Amino acid sequence: MEETAISPDPGLVDALRALSNPVRLQMLMWLREPERHFPLEEAIADPAEVGVCVSHIQARAGLAQSTVSAYMAELQRAGLVKATRVGKWTHYKRDDQRIAQLFAILMETL
């Protein structure tokens, strides 16, 4: 009996591609508990509500700002984080609802 090929969900493929980079995965893990991983006293917005400023993510990662911005943009395109502008700064927050959806799709697929 021949089984028909089923294409994986494109959103899931994008998310897995984004998470295949260990640094991007680490950044997403840091954003799970921003109060534990980033200096709250330097925040200009509530990390739980708005997210963490890209400059704080950059300082923690020890990478160039352009690299961190590119990594965060990849996570955003994959639907894993949401970006919010506060003044001239971009803040990133995990999209836990979308992450849960992708996890459910992954469980169904595999």
Rank of each mutant, 00 (worst) to 15 (best):
G11A: 01
D95P: 10
L80F: 07
A43L: 08
D95Q: 11
D46M: 07
Q26A: 12
H91M: 03
L31V: 05
Q58K: 13
T90P: 06
L16N: 10
A83R: 08
Y92E: 07
E49A: 12
Q101E: 10
V86E: 03
R36H: 11
R17H: 10
L63T: 03
D46R: 06
E49D: 13
Q97Y: 15
E33D: 15
A83T: 08
L102H: 00
P47M: 01
M72P: 02
Y71E: 00
D9S: 02
L19A: 02
L80K: 03
D9F: 06
Q65G: 04
L25Y: 08
Q58F: 12
L80G: 03
R98D: 06
V68F: 00
L40S: 00
M72W: 00
S66P: 00
S55C: 04
K88C: 06
M107G: 07
R77I: 05
A5P: 03
A104F: 04
H37A: 09
W30M: 05
V86A: 06
G87L: 05
K88N: 14
M1N: 08
L80V: 09
V13F: 02
L102D: 07
I6T: 12
A45C: 04
Q65K: 12
S20Y: 14
A45Q: 07
E35C: 00
R98Y: 11
K82I: 02
D46C: 00
M27V: 15
E41A: 11
Q26S: 13
A100W: 12
C53A: 13
Q76M: 13
L106F: 13
P8I: 08
E2F: 02
Q97L: 15
Q76N: 14
R24H: 07
F103A: 12
L110I: 10
R60F: 05
D95T: 07
A70D: 08
A78V: 08
L12N: 09
G87I: 01
E108R: 13
G11F: 03
R77N: 12
N21S: 09
T84W: 11
A78G: 08
M29T: 09
T84C: 08
P39L: 02
P34W: 00
E2T: 14
I6A: 10
E42G: 01
N21A: 02
S20R: 04
V50P: 05
L106Q: 00
I57S: 04
I99L: 09
E3G: 09
A83E: 14
A100E: 15
A78F: 00
S20V: 08
R98C: 07
G11N: 09
Q101V: 03
T84P: 03
V86P: 06
A18N: 04
T84L: 01
D9I: 00
R32G: 15
V52R: 07
L102E: 04
D95N: 12
S20W: 12
E2Y: 05
E74N: 10
A83C: 11
D14H: 10
G62M: 07
R36M: 09
L16F: 04
A43T: 09
R98T: 04
R85P: 02
P39H: 07
P34S: 04
A73D: 01
L110F: 11
D96W: 15
S66K: 11
V52Y: 00
D96Q: 15
I99D: 01
Q65N: 10
P47K: 02
Q76W: 01
T90Y: 04
L110A: 08
Y92M: 03
M29F: 01
E74D: 11
P47G: 00
Q26T: 14
L80D: 07
P34I: 08
